[in-house]
Simulated assay, not measured.
Amino acid sequence: MRSIYVVLLLIASNAFMTLAWYGHLKFAEWRWFNKLGLVGIVLFSWGLAFFEYILQVPANKYGFKGNGGSFTLIQLKVIQEVITLVVFVLFSMLFFKNEALQWNHYLAFVLLVCAVYLVFI
């Protein structure tokens, strides 16, 4: 059950990080957001990233074997990277419909699944 909690924390943290890193590209459609300027946009994104840290740090702390969790450090990192890409793909499909996935993107995802398998054997 702890492993599921860790993965859910990682998913939530990556949702905030994706918004922090790429959300401003979509938020630019809001009139008030465009008035912020670069410093304002950075601070807005930094505020979103704060919530990523609130979720990411406990996920790593509770998930790490050295703290009684289920995962090695490498396993945590690979899980996090796969979650990052899945969250990013969902985000881009929802908010940036003009960005199409190509065959090489699908192949890269398959290889990432292979990476997850390899770190768990």
Rank of each mutant, 00 (worst) to 15 (best):
G66Q: 13
E99W: 07
F71Y: 03
L55F: 13
M93K: 07
M93V: 14
M1S: 14
L8C: 15
R2H: 09
G69A: 05
N104L: 10
L48M: 11
H105Y: 15
V57W: 14
Y62K: 08
Q56L: 11
A115L: 07
I121L: 01
Y117P: 00
A100I: 09
V78G: 02
W21M: 14
E99F: 07
F96I: 07
I41V: 14
A15S: 09
L101F: 06
F120R: 02
G47D: 05
G69C: 08
N104E: 15
F120D: 01
L8Q: 08
V42H: 12
L94Y: 11
K65C: 11
K61D: 14
Q102P: 00
K65I: 13
A15M: 14
W103N: 02
N60W: 09
V82A: 05
G68Y: 13
H24W: 15
L90N: 08
F64H: 14
F96R: 12
L48I: 01
I83G: 07
N60V: 00
V116K: 04
T18I: 09
Y22P: 05
L73R: 08
F33V: 12
R31V: 12
V57L: 13
F120G: 01
V78I: 06
L73I: 00
F95H: 12
V116R: 01
W32V: 15
G68E: 08
L25G: 04
I121T: 03
V116D: 00
V39E: 09
I41S: 08
L43W: 07
F27A: 15
H24R: 14
E99Q: 10
G40S: 12
L101S: 03
A115F: 06
L76P: 02
L94N: 10
V113C: 12
A28P: 10
N60S: 05
F120N: 03
L25P: 01
F64R: 11
F16T: 08
